[in-house]
């Protein structure tokens, strides 16, 4: 009887260890819905000659996330200000970001 209790304890211990191990692994295994293209003005955002490099920030401090992306053509940087909400971003047009009064243009590749 004592032996059976011990072996039951051992089984429970193994089960717990497996569960703990599993949950640890599960958090590393984030899963994602199929990808969708980000849209602007009803069309997929497609930067000129490719090489999109997205970053997200509330650029104008209105409490809503905006989108900034690099592009290959002329090494320019596009800013899409969010016309929707923070939880449901909506984009229309973009502007090329300026620095020192001129459009930023970096060697691209």
């Amino acid at each position: 009887m004592k032996f059976r209790n011990l072996s039951l304890c051992f089984c429970l211990f193994v089960l717990c260890a497996v569960l703990v191990g599993y949950s640890g692994d599960a958090s590393a295994q984030k899963t994602f819905q199929p990808g969708v293209k980000l849209m602007a003005d009803g069309k997929p955002i497609d930067v000129t000659t490719g090489h999109s490099v997205p970053t997200v920030a509330d650029w104008n401090n209105d409490g809503k996330k905006d989108l900034i992306t690099g592009q290959f053509r002329d090494g320019k940087i596009r800013l899409y200000l969010n016309q929707g909400t923070d939880a449901k971003p909506v984009f229309k047009d973009s502007v090329y970001m300026k620095a020192g009064g001129k459009e930023i243009s970096l060697p691209a590749g």
């Binding site: 994602f32 990808g35 997929p44 955002i45 999109s52």
Partner: peptide, 21 residues
């Protein structure tokens, strides 16, 4: 996840959004 890309055949650069499940 947001993923920027290059696809030379079409010289495109979409931005893909993958929402966490």
């Amino acid at each position: 996840l947001l993923v920027g890309e290059r696809y030379a055949q079409e010289k495109r650069g979409y931005i893909w959004l993958f929402l966490g499940k």
